[in-house]
Design a protein around this nucleic acid. Structure first.
Lengths: 348, 348
DNA sequence: TTGAAAGCGCTAACAT
DNA sequence: ATGTTAGCGCTTTCAA
């Protein structure tokens, strides 16, 4: 802890008032009338002494720690967690809240999450943010019941806690529409083969755009595999090796797109001249460093982090009914990030 | 804050002892003799009630918050910050410390860092971790003086605060030695052109290995450019286009290596048959997804985070002299991560 | 071997 | 319009 700083009574003494007055002035306590003159004296004294309230004393007294816990899976694996943390942290700062972070194992055995939540509760956090690393449905640890909570990038199986997730359909629509606008009608989709929401929702977005543009759905243009580079490569080889190969590829994520780049290179296909490619996730390390730069869809991790904190604040402050907020998970926009991997199809 | 939990007096009452005894038993206060019988009763009562101490009250009383602040640059940009956070968080948990995180702008104008440090101090953190996103020398905000601090991935210009940085030379030595062991003697180095420690230290490691193996240093084999994919590509094109091109490339980082991969592909050079490549940083997203997998050197971010917390704990606990610890920054190992981009040079 | 009580710095109910 | 004071839950000195 810092050096023995000035306390509220020092301020009171210097300003020649009581501690009550200091407290009232500095906290701008409502329904309390203090002359503007006194207020000024107090504020001046506080500044002179470099006074800042002792948060621990405040917390003890008010039963509010000002701490909010972020339980995050696999902080270390992707930059996604970083974006969530950043968004949450910035929003928290706005509300004078402090973010404490606990890393947790993915999915684990369930008791692990329970213990992590408990660790947070034991540390007197006012509320908890529960973030998963990819969009899915989870069962919450039971001890999360007693405390305000918001889910990030996942939805509560029981539907009792507010949640925010990416608008996967919207993102896929943006990606495929971009391809259609460029003139493509034969658009392949390299999909994930996991049974997670994104798999189904991105496919739904793909189909919707085709439908809206009167392009018949061709199931031969949709291939699935694990969402990694190598399987993406394999799928792309397969689809691009056909005589009636598509002129554009929508990939489940940037890693699969990276595999598609390699397949295209091996087949002598130039991106974007011979083949347009759109990815998903906007992992800078891949998307910006591929050549040509990969046009892709960004996941709103920063925004989800910020939204979650704002929602928590509302829960804490207005004492709003969480059920109201948790009827439907909130969808956040997945904007298209245009780089250089899309062009009109060749016409020769 | 959580539900109105049991307090120490509840435990005392249930165990039929005073709060003093409960405190002594639960904290295992030294020099205090309580009969084993009583201890057992107290522990049992505590467990029965699910008692956990109120951290805020403890903090207020002991003047120790148990909070340690991590000031980190650009949390969102790379997974590196995630590794630091993870290492710090795990070490913190071991010592029953809680990590609070503040993101800060890179370098900024200096006052920004000052304010961020102040925000942490205002929140009663017991100590602060100051992490930069790449290895460099910094001037610390003045308000960091009053509080135990440790630097991660940077060194203090004034040399007054303990610091931990990667062993860049050792990492480069491992990388180049790996190449030499594979049989290479013409090894190109695509270096960064920024004036940062890593630039000079990795070059030093490169030279040391050559020297130790009696390989003459050829300055034409060292090219510099910004440490990004595109410049890396340019450098590789240049060096690999020569008739006496090297048989192996050591790259300043994985992004430059990614550029080298493209150059090699364009020149019809197969990796690793015609060209071996080693990177630096071990950015999974790149290194593991490139084809073939990139052999590279890992930065010890996790370990630095953990080391920093351990050091902080020693500072806090043993009240050790920080000057002792800060004479020389501690170097942590940069281990080689072998994948598939290195082979013996062609002999035809 | 155990307990009573003061007090950490603050907020807020109640007095004036 | 401003002040007095109890008490948040705990640790720790001192006494028994």
């Amino acid at each position: 802890m810092a050096v023995k700083n000035a306390g509220i009574r020092d301020v009171a003494q210097l300003a020649g008032v009581s501690v009550t007055t200091v407290s009232h002035v500095l906290n701008e306590t409502p329904h309390t009338r203090v002359s503007e003159d006194t207020r000024e004296r107090v504020r001046h004294a506080a500044k002179t002494l470099g006074y800042g309230p002792n948060r621990m004393a405040q917390a003890l007294r008010t039963n509010r720690s000002g701490l909010i816990g972020l339980l995050s899976e696999e902080i270390a694996t992707t930059p996604h967690a970083g974006r969530i943390i950043l968004g949450a942290q910035n929003a928290a700062r706005e509300h004078d809240l402090t973010l404490v972070i606990i890393n947790t194992e993915r999915e684990a055995d369930g008791t692990s999450h329970r213990e992590d939540v408990q660790a947070l509760i034991d540390r007197q956090v006012d509320a908890v943010l529960y973030a998963t690393m990819y969009h899915r449905t989870v069962s919450l640890p039971p001890n999360l019941q007693g405390i305000p909570a918001v889910l990030i990038d996942s939805t509560d199986r029981a539907g009792i806690v507010p949640a925010v997730v990416p608008d996967e359909v919207g993102g896929a629509v943006a990606a495929v529409a971009h391809l259609v606008e460029a003139g493509h009608t034969r658009i392949g989709f390299l999909n994930n083969d996991d049974d997670v929401p994104a798999t189904h929702l991105r496919l739904a977005g793909y189909r919707r755009v085709l439908e809206e543009n009167g392009i018949p759905f061709d199931e031969r243009l949709v291939l699935s595999a694990p969402s990694e580079t190598l399987p993406g490569y394999g799928l792309a080889r397969e689809m691009l090796g056909r005589s009636d190969r598509p002129t554009a590829l929508f990939c489940y994520n940037d890693r699969m797109a990276m595999g598609a780049y390699r397949a295209a290179a091996e087949l002598g296909l130039d991106i974007p001249r011979d083949l347009s490619v759109v990815g998903f996730d906007n992992q800078e390390l891949i998307a910006a460093n591929l050549f040509p730069g990969l046009t892709t869809v960004a996941l709103p991790h920063y925004e989800m982090g910020a939204w979650a904190v704002e929602t928590l604040v509302r829960l804490l402050h207005d004492d709003a009914d969480p059920r109201r907020l948790s009827d439907e998970p909130t969808l956040l926009d997945c904007p298209l990030v245009v780089r250089d991997s899309v062009a009109a199809p060749r016409t020769d």
